[in-house]
Amino acid sequence: MNRIVELFRNKSEQILNIYFTAGFPTLENTVPVLEALSEAGVDLIEIGMPYSDPVADGETIQQSNQKALENGISIKRLFEQLSGIREKVKVPILLMGYLNPVVQFGVEDFCRRCAEVGIDGLILPDLPVDVYKEEYKGIFDRYGILNIFLITPQTIESRIRKIDEVSDGFIYMVSSASTTGSQKGITDEMKAYFSRIKEMNLRNPRLIGFGIKDYETFHTACAYANGAIVGSAFVRLLEQNQENQRAAILNYVSSLRHSHQVEKIFSNLSA
């Protein structure tokens, strides 16, 4: 069974999905980050495939994309890095990126490689729903790769229903009208949107992303959806903690799950 489907079958709340950019801050950093995230107990991992023109992304992820490309990452190289990863990492893995590099790689070849290395799903924000249905779904299905679609506060109900219909795995709820790395926090307006979607009783689970960065935002999002996605904040963490990366990742993931208060109690107990 697809690992994403299996995850949502066994767990329906507090699902933590972490995004990071492949080949960042150094070319060979992809696997160490995967291993640390797995060790930290995240539920899902989203690997960003760097692109020269990531229009849906804010500054942090843009710069990480540019740096990774300068480091020499490519899709081919990424698949080489991921080869054998399933011996070490069991967490479901998504690849997130833009359509053009996938098209140049060849959609069929791309899906085949995904299946070979153990990728479970894709997020391609600029792949339109109709093009997916007509040209891609057959190929994705053949290799057992799920495609994850986005919805935003501006997505109208009929379209959300259509996206729910064509989706498998989960629906990615963009929290506000913004690119990634939004600093807006979670406003009442956003909560109203989260509630509205929750009440639609969609067939797919929902994860909320964009602007999720700490205990508070993660848990607020989790109150309205099955879980949430952290991206830019984690990319910044990687950039700032190159020396002690593993410890920083374990610590950060723990801080998302548990409030500092709780952490303090734990440290007092062990003292």
């Binding site: 849906a56 093009v131 986005l150 919805i151 935003t152 501006q154 997505t155 109208i156 913004s178």
Partner: peptide
């Protein structure tokens, strides 16, 4: 041609 845009741009 077509409209290969992220969902954030779709409504506009």
């Amino acid at each position: 041609g077509g409209a290969f845009i992220p969902e954030m741009l779709y409504p506009n």
